[in-house]
C-alpha cells in the first residue's frame, strides 16, 4: 500500500514535469548560465589556474540550481486544491515526504547528468574521469542531503507569505555544512592532491548529515505538512 502510493506520487510528479518541462529546463539553463558567469567573474588578468576553485563553483551552482526546483516542489499542488486532494488520501505523511524528496532528487540528478560533463569540459578537462567513483559518491550523498533538507523546508515554506523568498533564507544557512564538505571533497578529488582519507572523511560527514536531516524530517513531517 505504502509502496503503491509512493510510486504513484513519484510517477505523477515526473509525468507532470516531462509534460510541462517547467522546472527542469529552468534549472538546467540556470546552472549553465551560472557556470559561464563564474568563468568571467573569476578569470583574473594573466589567466590564473581556476582548478582550485572548481569544487566550490560546482556546488554553489548545484545548491542554487536545486533551490529553483525545491521552490517548485508544491507549486502545482496549489492550483485546483490538489494539495487538499493529497491530504485527503489515506497516506502516511512520511510517504508524501519520501515521494516529494525522490522527485526533487530525480530532477537534480537529471540536471547533473548534463551539467557535470559540461563542467568538466569547461573547467577541469580530464581530471574528473580519473576519480569518478569518489566523485560520484560525493554527488549522491550531497544530493540526498539537499533533497531531504530542501523538501522539508519547502513544505514549511509552502504555507508562508512570499515563499519563494523565504526558502533560500532558511535553506542556505542550513546547507552550508553540506556545501563545505561537498566542495572541499570535490576540490580534493579534482586536484588529486589530497589522499583518499580526506575524501572518505567528507563522505562520512555527508552520510551523517543526510541521516540527521532524514531523521528530523521523519520525526517532524506530520507537523510540517500542516493541518
Amino acid at each position: 500500500m505504502g509502496l503503491r502510493q509512493y510510486r504513484a506520487m513519484v510517477r505523477k510528479d515526473i509525468v507532470r514535469e516531462l509534460r510541462t518541462r517547467e522546472t527542469v529546463v529552468a534549472m538546467l539553463l540556470f546552472v549553465v548560465l551560472a557556470m559561464v558567469v563564474f568563468h568571467y567573474a573569476f578569470t583574473v588578468p594573466g589567466g590564473g589556474d581556476l582548478s582550485l576553485l572548481t569544487g566550490g563553483m560546482l556546488w554553489v551552482v548545484f545548491v542554487f540550481g536545486a533551490l529553483l526546483g525545491l521552490n517548485r516542489t508544491f507549486a502545482h499542488e496549489k492550483d485546483e486544491g490538489c494539495f487538499d486532494g493529497l491530504l485527503l488520501c489515506p497516506v502516511d505523511r512520511v510517504t508524501i515526504f519520501l515521494a516529494k524528496m525522490t522527485a526533487n532528487l530525480v530532477f537534480l540528478g537529471l540536471i547533473q547528468v548534463i551539467a557535470v560533463p559540461l563542467f568538466a569540459l569547461f573547467f577541469a578537462t580530464g581530471r574528473m574521469a580519473t576519480h569518478l567513483p569518489a566523485f560520484l559518491a560525493l554527488v549522491v550523498l550531497a544530493d540526498l542531503g539537499i533533497a531531504a533538507l530542501g523538501t522539508l523546508l519547502a513544505t514549511i515554506a509552502m504555507h508562508t507569505r512570499a515563499r519563494e523568498l523565504l526558502l533560500p533564507i532558511v535553506f542556505l544557512p542550513l546547507v552550508i555544512p553540506l556545501l563545505i564538505a561537498a566542495a572541499s571533497g570535490t576540490s580534493a578529488v579534482l586536484s588529486g592532491t589530497a589522499g583518499s582519507g580526506s575524501v572518505l572523511g567528507r563522505l562520512a560527514f555527508l552520510l551523517v548529515y543526510d541521516g540527521v536531516f532524514l531523521v528530523l524530517a521523519y520525526g517532524t513531517y506530520d507537523v510540517a505538512i500542516g493541518e
Binding site: 500500500m1 503503491r4 502510493q5 510510486r7 504513484a8 506520487m9 510517477r11 505523477k12 509525468v15 507532470r16 509534460r19 510541462t20 502545482h76 492550483d79 485546483e80 486544491g81 490538489c82 487538499d84 486532494g85 493529497l86 485527503l88 488520501c89 489515506p90 497516506v91
Partner: peptide, 25 residues
C-alpha cells in the same frame, strides 16, 4: 467534492484517476 476540482491540470483524466486509485488502494 468541493468547488475546487482537486485534479492536476497537466494530467489527463485517466492519469488523474489512476493516481487517486493508487493512493486509495
Amino acid at each position: 467534492i468541493s468547488h475546487n476540482a482537486l485534479l492536476y491540470r497537466d494530467l489527463t483524466a485517466q492519469e488523474n484517476l489512476r493516481f487517486y486509485a493508487d493512493m486509495y488502494g
